[in-house]
């Protein structure tokens, strides 16, 4: 992928060479669906739960959490059946932190390997 634009409702939203949007304020639910489609993900309620959780986390701490931190925080809020690596990787096969953050319109998590 190279830097370019997502098309949402006839509007162009710029993204970087990895697909992360450039201006965090450009995010919308419609845009999330567009990014998810490109990542081959059908957004279910479970996907949205993670995406919304990430947006809340970012809102509070101004950082996108590393996967380990995401798992721990999910566990605390939703319990162990959702706060584990397997569950999150099933929802976002190419890496929950990376893929879900991209859909949530956040920057790439710091220290994401």
């Amino acid at each position: 992928m190279s830097a370019g634009y997502y098309e949402v409702n006839g509007k162009q939203v710029p993204h970087d060479e990895e697909g992360y949007i450039t201006n965090l304020s450009d995010w919308s639910k419609e845009l999330a669906e567009v990014i998810a489609k490109q990542e081959n993900i059908d957004m279910t309620d479970e996907h949205w739960e993670v995406v919304n959780f990430l947006r809340e986390y970012y809102d509070e701490y101004q950082i996108a959490p590393a996967i380990r931190v995401l798992v721990k925080a999910m566990k605390k809020k939703f319990g162990p059946e959702k706060g584990n690596n397997k569950y999150l990787y099933e929802l976002f096969p190419y890496g929950p932190a990376k893929q879900a953050c991209k859909i949530a319109g956040l920057p790439k998590p710091t220290g994401c390997v």
Binding site: E60, Y61, Q62, I63, P65, V69, K72
Partner: peptide, 9 residues
Amino acid sequence: PAYTALGDY
């Protein structure tokens, strides 16, 4: 705010 997240890390 990121400093207050360091406990999570």
